[in-house]
Simulated assay, not measured.
Amino acid sequence: MTDLNQGAAWMGGQIIPITDAAIPVTDWGLTHSDIAYDVVPVWRGAFFRLDDYVTRFIASLTAGRYDIGMDHAAICAALQDMVAASRLQDAYVAMVAARGRNPIAGSRDPRDCANHFYAWCVPYVHIVKPDAAAQGTSVWIAKSVRRIPADSVNPRVKNYHWGDFTSGLFEAKDRGFETTLLLDHQGNVTEGPGFNVFAVFGDKVVTPDAGVLHGITRQTVLDMCAEAGLTSAVRPLPLEEFWGADEVFLSSSGGGVIPVARVDDRHFSNGAAGPVATGLRQRYFDWIARDTHRTDVLYP
């Protein structure tokens, strides 16, 4: 069998090396960024919260009117087969629905497109390198762009519309920051590329309620806060209030809880990873090793 340990893809029922995976140049997924997707982590040979991720993916399909001809069980089976074939023990696993090609020349009717599903996996992705995350990463609040309003692109449908995030990333990288965080048009904190954000005020943890993906890792953090005896709130988080936080951290399926030491020119937790964020980061890697939310990969 072809070596798949650098990444595999499931396309049309076939499992192939990720380097061979492609979609047609006329696929609306490519030409219009007309794609819904989700990402589930595999850690130490098991999916974490697989049912939750697939359920959210299916909700995105419904909201976006994608018909891929696969139900929850079929999607799980495709992901299982692909990861098992790759033999990856720790993996970043994407499930994707693309609008597809329009077979009618000149048609602008999305109902004419042949929607399709594909998936791919690569070795586990940390959106911030573990050493940098442990010390506390840096975040730049974008100044030239605001988060796309929810009545334009629904942030609860995980999608490929990254124009606002990409502009923010250029700002951040040009200034030596690791990543970016976007505000909405009312001046509230929203989210960044691939992560939700949390602010810590004493023993209370706050995360924005609007303009954000309702992340599975975000929910895991809220669950862990309850277990740790921390109070949590999901509500608007104005930038002025955010600046007064004791700590800041991010949550992502690519790395769990990621402490933040610096936002713009402000340092949090004396420019280091804060104790609450550090504790939740350690707790996260304990949680993803528990049997409660794990679905073993059925390796050959």
Rank of each mutant, 00 (worst) to 15 (best):
Phe195Ile: 09
His32Thr: 14
Ala210Trp: 09
Ala46Gly: 02
Lys129Ser: 15
Asp209His: 13
Gly136His: 00
Cys76His: 01
Thr278Asn: 06
Asp164Gly: 07
Ala8Gln: 04
Ile58Asp: 01
Trp120Glu: 04
Arg235Asp: 06
Asp38Val: 13
Val125Leu: 15
Asn5Gln: 12
Ser232Arg: 04
Pro259Cys: 06
Gly202Met: 10
Val297Trp: 08
Gln219Trp: 13
Asn188Cys: 12
Glu171Arg: 06
Phe198Ser: 09
Asn5Asp: 11
Arg147Ser: 01
Ile288Lys: 03
Gly168Ile: 10
Glu227Ala: 07
Thr292Gln: 11
Val276Ala: 05
Phe242Ala: 00
His116Asn: 10
Ala105Gly: 12
Cys121Asn: 06
Phe285Val: 00
Pro238Cys: 00
Arg44Ile: 07
Arg156Pro: 09
Asp209Pro: 05
Asp81His: 13
Gln80Tyr: 05
Ser138Gly: 03
Phe165Asn: 14
Ile68Tyr: 11
Leu230His: 02
Ile68Ala: 12
Gln6Ala: 14
Ile127Ala: 11
Gly244Ser: 08
Gly12Ser: 13
Ile216Gln: 10
Gln219His: 14
Ala226Glu: 04
Leu239Ser: 02
Val93Gln: 02
Val212Trp: 04
Leu237Asp: 00
Gly274Thr: 02
Ser232Lys: 03
Pro149Glu: 02
Asp109Tyr: 08
Ala36Val: 15
Ala150Tyr: 08
